[in-house]
Simulated assay, not measured.
Amino acid sequence: MDYLMVIWRTVFLYVVIFFVFRIMGKREIGELSLLDLVVFVMIADIAVIGIENYDGEIIEAVLPIVTLFIIQMTIAYASLKLPFLRKVIDGEPTFLIHNGKINQKAMKKLRYNMDDLLMQLREKGVRNISEVEFGIVEASGKLSVYEFVEPAPLAAVKPAPILTLIQDGKVMKENLKGIGRTESWLTAELRRYGHPDLKDVFLCSLEDDALRIFRKE
């Protein structure tokens, strides 16, 4: 193996890819579109092949990279002029929460589970779903949260963290045990709120010592 040749090809392709990405523009990883991700993965694979295949001409690696760059820039420019194309490529925002209520159909469509949603809400400092006016999954997959300007009716001044008691019809026994309650107490509370069957409950959480119940749709 000609080590100097490998080093030279690596440095050269590094410079080429650096300028290609530089021209393509600055974007955070979380903001990459599907098109960007496909192009980046393909360029990375082509670069590796170009480095390992040191017997071939360097142009064999550079040409596919430049071709992908041209394709990406052409589609990106076209999407600026054609809204429908931008919608096809990048997708569109989806409302998961509206006025403190969860859009279960949207969650199923996006294959978004409650653990993901609650984790992201906690990361953004949101303690109660009832505090959220809009929860939007952006085209990039990032969750944007807009809380009520004034506290929602169920929100306390210093609310406690959200505690899931039922998720998709299943009782979270550890959480229930953690607050010193039994399944009998939970069943009785559900009946009091007009939910006699656990299997019909999509989510039941304890927020500010009050139950928040979402029925399956």
Rank of each mutant, 00 (worst) to 15 (best):
M5Y: 13
R27E: 02
L4R: 11
R212L: 11
Q120P: 09
A47E: 01
S184E: 14
K199E: 15
P83R: 08
S140F: 04
Y14F: 11
P196D: 09
V201H: 01
V157F: 13
I58Q: 03
Y193S: 11
I166P: 00
P83Q: 08
K109S: 14
V66C: 03
G91E: 09
Y54A: 05
F84W: 14
S79T: 09
A139V: 05
V38R: 02
F19H: 04
R191D: 09
L186T: 04
M73P: 00
A160F: 08
K216D: 09
S79W: 09
A76Y: 06
S140H: 01
E207I: 00
D168A: 10
L143N: 06
V48K: 10
P159H: 05
G56W: 13
L117H: 05
D115T: 12
V16R: 02
I71S: 05
M172I: 08
V16A: 04
Q104R: 10
I51H: 00
E60T: 14
E183L: 07
I59L: 14
N99S: 15
K199Q: 14
D2V: 06
Y146T: 03
T10S: 08
P196H: 07
I43W: 01
S140W: 02
V145R: 00
R22P: 05
Q72L: 09
G141I: 06
I75A: 08
A61M: 07
F202M: 10
P161E: 04
I29E: 04
V149S: 12
L163Q: 02
W8Q: 05
